[in-house]
Simulated scan of single mutants.
Amino acid sequence: MDHTNTHCNSKVLRECTLPLTGKEVVQGGLTIAECADGVTEQDLRDATLATIIRQPQER
């Protein structure tokens, strides 16, 4: 998924700008499960306006 549009603006926003069907269903932010080859966590954070939560480390 591209996180930015052709003008380099984030497509992943802090708030939805469209009519909502499940308000308050998702809370807290996005969790990064894994990054594609060649993409770092910082790359994702730089391209995303939404809150990103670090996934807890497996023990």
Rank of each mutant, 00 (worst) to 15 (best):
T51R: 12
N5L: 03
N9F: 04
A50W: 09
I53K: 13
L18W: 01
Q27G: 01
K11D: 13
K11T: 09
R59W: 08
D43S: 03
I53H: 00
A36M: 10
P19L: 04
V26Q: 03
D37F: 09
E15Q: 07
R14G: 04
C35Q: 07
H3W: 14
M1H: 01
G29D: 02
C8E: 05
S10W: 05
L44G: 03
C16W: 12
E24D: 13
E15D: 12
A33P: 10
E58S: 11
P19E: 07
G29P: 09
K23R: 11
T40Y: 02
V26C: 09
V39G: 01
T40C: 15
T4I: 04
L18T: 04
L49Y: 05
E58G: 01
I52R: 00
C8V: 13
E24V: 05
E34V: 05
R45L: 15
D2Q: 04
V39D: 04
P19F: 00
H7I: 07
M1D: 11
H3M: 08
D37M: 04
N5F: 01
G29N: 05
D46H: 07
V25S: 09
H3E: 08
Q42L: 13
R45A: 10
L18R: 02
V12C: 11
R59Y: 11
Q27E: 12
N5P: 10
T31N: 15
R14W: 02
C35W: 01
E24W: 06
L13W: 06
A47K: 15
E41K: 03
A50G: 05
D2I: 00
E41S: 11
P19H: 07
T17C: 06
R59K: 14
E15G: 01
T31G: 02
L18D: 02
Q27Y: 00
N9W: 00
H7Q: 15
N5I: 00
V26R: 09
V26L: 10
T31K: 12
D37E: 05
H7F: 06
R45W: 01
E34L: 12
T21V: 14
P19C: 01
E24N: 10
N9T: 04
L49P: 06
A50N: 13
T40N: 10
A50R: 05
V26D: 13
R59A: 14
G38C: 06
L20T: 07
I53C: 02
T21C: 15
L49H: 06
R45T: 07
R45Y: 03
N9R: 10
D37N: 12
V25D: 07
E15V: 09
T21P: 07
L49Q: 11
V26T: 07
E41V: 15
N5H: 00
I52W: 02
G22L: 10
C16K: 01
L30A: 08
V25E: 12
T6D: 14
C8Y: 00
A33W: 06
V39H: 09
L20H: 03
H7D: 11
A36V: 14
E58F: 03
N9E: 14
R14C: 08
L49I: 13
A50H: 08
D2C: 11
T6H: 00
L20M: 07
H3Q: 11
R14A: 15
E34K: 05
C35I: 01
Q55C: 12
G29A: 04
V25G: 08
K23N: 04
G29K: 08
T6C: 12
T6I: 09
S10G: 01
V25W: 14
E58M: 13
D46Q: 09
A36P: 10
D2W: 00
R59Q: 11
L18N: 02
S10L: 05
K11L: 14
C8A: 11
